[in-house]
């Protein structure tokens, strides 16, 4: 664990319920610069809600959240609109089902927010978008629309879209769950490339082998709590908790 001051994101004692159902029960998590954290666990364990709270798509009932020195929420009460807007500039999110804008070309999907939201010069944003798409193996697809791409290509385009805003941290919400095995491989390869560049990432995933390989730290969540966390090898090879062991056994079977 890293201390609050040097971490990219820090979540403390987070609680969240939907109606009477608690989904996050006292979750604390912070991520250091360059660290790759994989979040694993059974469905309904709170993984997605955790990401949605970190990305401000959901609000915590209680607990605090900060990005670098920026306090987003404390004691469950959130900062002003402009604070939240500043926080949004510090993270990117890659969705399970991409959520590309279907009416924009692939290029425009990547360069629109840098121009419109960040006010960057169009030429510069376009040049960078093209470079990012090339890096994602999508050179030549700039002028296509998302529906002309395979799922794997769409997901890589959505990763480019997230990176174009220069986030300090990128969240992935089961980025390969909607993909065939072969398309999964190309997306995982891209994420591994980012890890090699020391991009700070939190990845919710069902790909155990990938989590083991790419993550510095693995967090196992179940029932709205972090059951176990630690270095990837330790959690996945020598889990201390019975629930983690049961989950991993079931995954292998």
């Amino acid at each position: 664990m890293t201390s609050g001051t040097e971490s990219v994101v820090s979540l403390e004692h987070a609680r969240k319920s939907f109606g009477d159902t608690p989904v996050l029960r006292d979750i604390s998590l912070s991520v250091a610069p360059g660290e790759v954290v994989a979040v694993i666990g059974p469905s309904g364990g709170g993984k997605s809600t955790l990401l949605r709270c970190l990305t401000l798509l959901e609000r915590l009932d209680d607990g605090s959240l900060s990005y670098g020195g920026l306090n987003v929420a404390s004691g469950g009460s959130y900062g002003e609109k402009n604070v939240l807007a500043q926080a949004r500039q510090r993270f990117g999110l890659v969705f399970q089902n991409y959520n590309l804008f279907p009416h924009f070309s692939v290029l425009r999907n990547v360069m629109d927010a840098p121009v419109v939201v960040q006010g960057r010069p169009r030429d510069e944003a376009e040049a960078e978008a093209r470079a990012l798409l090339a890096k994602m193996g999508l050179a030549g697809s700039e002028d296509k629309v998302p529906c002309q791409l395979s799922g794997g290509q769409q997901q890589r385009a959505s990763i480019a879209r997230a990176l174009a805003l220069h986030p300090k941290i990128v969240y992935f919400d089961e980025p390969t769950s909607a993909l065939d095995p072969e398309l999964t491989a190309e997306v995982l390869r891209v994420i591994k490339g980012l890890a090699a560049e020391r991009m700070t990432m939190v990845i919710v995933t069902h790909e155990m082998g990938f989590a083991r390989e790419v993550a510095d730290r693995v967090v196992f969540m179940d029932g709205g709590v972090i059951v176990e966390e630690g270095p990837a090898e330790q959690v996945m090879e020598h889990p201390r908790e019975e629930r983690t062991r049961a989950f991993l056994r079931q995954r292998e079977a």
Partner: peptide, 25 residues
């Protein structure tokens, strides 16, 4: 919903989201 959420996370304002993302669709 995902269209609104993607736009929100990217930092589009509500007006920008409506005019650029939602309305054309």
């Amino acid at each position: 919903r995902g269209q609104h959420e993607a736009a929100e996370v990217l930092g589009y304002s509500r007006t920008q989201t409506f005019c650029r993302i939602v309305l054309p669709q």
